[in-house]
């Protein structure tokens, strides 16, 4: 449903997103996890057609977001980090305006707005001015705005940021309910959020994709095993040899740099298999071009992400105050 291919975005000399590739299948919830400033918002802005990519392309529901922008945007709903509300409109006026520009047929508008307001629990706020809403309600009106035209794809940028715990639970529940009809990408820098709502996770750091996996697998990979990256030259297939080393639990081909092949070697935690790998490769007469632990970068980010959750509460409180 969403295909991001080699996406790169530069702001002058700064590279915000660097060669990011992933895809999201229909009906799936994909979590976009990374510390602040990792490039999550930039990636989402390209997916929603807010800004064009410097390089690479993004295809949403079969339409290129740059070349067929209008068609792609028709099928995309977007909740930016700050909900895009007009403070002097009431909630109903605002949603009516959004329905008009999103191309909801005039006859359907009222029933659609009523349904969406009920779904996001804002029906009792219909007559209230958007500028006078609390943070939690603003977020919900933002969500209502995003799903109003029943888009195939929903892009949610930190949908639970600044909400109180009860609202967070409700919002996550709502997102899960929406997943059946919509394909969802949501970004967050909170680890448990991903574990609870998403089927798959893309971890991004400094503009690069660090890992793509299910939350369970990620946890397993992180907690239960260590992973090495081994680049071997001269071997047709080194899988069996690497598998034979004691302590190694899994070997997979990571990438190919012909004629060299890169492998991901997983081993039992606490056992350093680097010497054995080196010895095994060299004794076969192959060239060992690279041998480095993969876990470090992933773990670092995970640490960053998990520790940030504790900091999250006061930060969110500050946001409301401002």
């Amino acid at each position: 449903m969403i295909e991001v291919q080699h996406l790169t975005k530069r702001y002058g000399p700064v590279t915000a997103v660097d060669d990011v590739t992933f895809r999201v299948e229909r009906g799936e919830i994909l979590g976009f996890l990374g510390p602040n400033g990792a490039g999550k918002t930039t990636t989402m802005r390209v997916i929603t057609g807010y800004m064009p990519p410097t390089d690479g392309r993004v295809i949403v529901a079969g339409f290129d977001v740059f070349d067929q922008a209008i068609e792609a945007k028709r099928r995309t709903g977007y909740l930016p980090e700050t909900p895009p509300l007009y403070p002097d409109m009431t909630v109903r006026e605002y949603l009516t305006f959004v329905a008009r520009i999103k191309g909801v047929a005039a006859a359907e508008r009222k029933s659609r707005i009523d349904r969406v307001m009920k779904r996001t629990w804002i029906a009792d706020m219909a007559g209230r001015h958007c500028g006078k809403l609390s943070k939690g309600y603003r977020q919900r009106v933002g969500l209502a705005q995003a799903i109003l035209h029943n888009p195939d794809v929903l892009v949610l940028d930190e949908p639970t940021a600044g909400l109180d715990p009860k609202q967070i639970i409700e919002t996550r529940q709502l997102i899960k309910e929406l997943a059946g009809d919509h394909t969802i990408i949501l970004s967050t820098h909170i680890l448990p959020e991903v574990a609870q709502t998403c089927q798959r996770v893309v971890i991004i750091n400094k503009g690069r994709v660090v890992a793509v996996d299910t939350p369970d697998n990620l946890t397993h990979r992180l907690r239960g095993a260590e992973t090495m990256y081994v680049l071997v030259d001269g071997a047709a297939d080194a899988t069996a040899t690497l598998q034979g080393i004691t302590g190694v639990t899994r070997v997979a081909v990571a990438d190919r740099h012909e004629p060299a092949v890169g492998y991901e070697v997983e081993s039992v935690r606490g056992e350093d298999v680097r010497r054995d790998i080196a010895r095994a490769v060299v004794s076969q007469g192959w060239g060992l071009l690279e041998l480095r632990p993969l876990r470090m970068s992933l773990e670092e980010i995970f640490l960053q992400v998990t520790t940030e959750e504790q900091v999250e509460k006061p930060a969110a409180a500050g946001e409301v105050a401002s």
């Binding site: 929603t48 700050t82 895009p84 999103k102 191309g103």
Partner: peptide
Amino acid sequence: SGTMELLLTSP
């Protein structure tokens, strides 16, 4: 106010 994001991501 960030509503530019709404306009530019609408069809």
